[in-house]
Design a protein around this nucleic acid. Sequence first.
DNA 1: CCTATTTTTCAGAAATTTCTGAAATCTCTG
DNA 2: CAGAGATTTCAGAAATTTCTGAAAAATAGG
Lengths: 183, 183
Amino acid sequence: MKTTPLLQEFILHFGEMGSRWGINRTVGQIYALLFLSSEPLNAETITDALGISRSNTSMGLKELQSWNLVRLKHIPGDRRDYFTTPDDLWEIVRTLVAERKKREIDPTLTKLRELEMQGPAGDDYAEARIAELRELIEMMTGFYAELDRLETDRLVKLMTTGRRIAGLIDKTGGVIPALAKRK
Amino acid sequence: MKTTPLLQEFILHFGEMGSRWGINRTVGQIYALLFLSSEPLNAETITDALGISRSNTSMGLKELQSWNLVRLKHIPGDRRDYFTTPDDLWEIVRTLVAERKKREIDPTLTKLRELEMQGPAGDDYAEARIAELRELIEMMTGFYAELDRLETDRLVKLMTTGRRIAGLIDKTGGVIPALAKRK
DNA sequence: CCTATTTTTCAGAAATTTCTGAAATCTCTG
DNA sequence: CAGAGATTTCAGAAATTTCTGAAAAATAGG
């Protein structure tokens, strides 16, 4: 496994960013290595390339699999597991967003609903604040669900529509009429 | 500072979620407390309500201020600092997204550009992958910038447009003609 | 420019997370 | 179904992060 300076720097960066992204250094590094590798890699190759223990590699790969961020491949005549990242970057982004939503938002949404179910707690301000937060999260996750439903090329188109986004909604705050009529 | 079961549970939840959100338990709890409090609170009140040390409160507040998530208030005739969260939840969301972008995405975008500047590194696949990732991040941050530019009521309208989002982009992948013409 | 009050800093303690090596488990293949 | 190879588990070590108490610094009011 030749590791160019480019690869090296990219790996170190992902390792450092790991903690901000909610993963640890090793997991970030393993991901970085796989991301830039044109070929699937096995655990031993990763272990050697990163200079970590074999068990750490195993745990890191397990973590990446729990995030659905790596794919398992097999090479004929070789019993070892090989790992890759998807070729399609949009697939990666979709996975990442879906997983972060699941881990960072859904539990809170559930908790807010629970708290509301428990009924009046004698603190009107807090209750209103919780309801408002729940509604806002529902709105945002609903919007996300809509975007997630789009095929990638449409999503790209929407995102690159640029300045015109503002125009998608008319001044009165409604969807523009021409749109409302479209099927 | 009366702390109802509702408040208690909310605070504990935010404390537990803290690590997933990239803050620590104390910071999460302080924020939760301020978020549900109709009145600004001073450091001592927070310290007592959460049962933590005064210095920990100080550090937590400093951290929240670095995130721009709390506002400092003063009460006439009282020299202590009082803290609140903004009333407007959208303001909070905007701040949160902006800060996370700054901490989690911008450094990587900078690094990717740096790596590209360093010129050919003899690994075509890795170079192409890095360029592709950089382009994708630029597209997404550009889209974010567009949305961030919208006034809140338009943003809400856009987000609640629901199923019609898909219709904003026509089948050929372009913006629908009626829209393209609008100023 | 004191003094009382409030806030911040910081070194070390406590807690948590990450990492390792060794052993256990799994799984192909002959 | 034995055994070689591959992977996972896990207890403890190492590293990192969080928290505290004490001391220092900042600030307003007299």
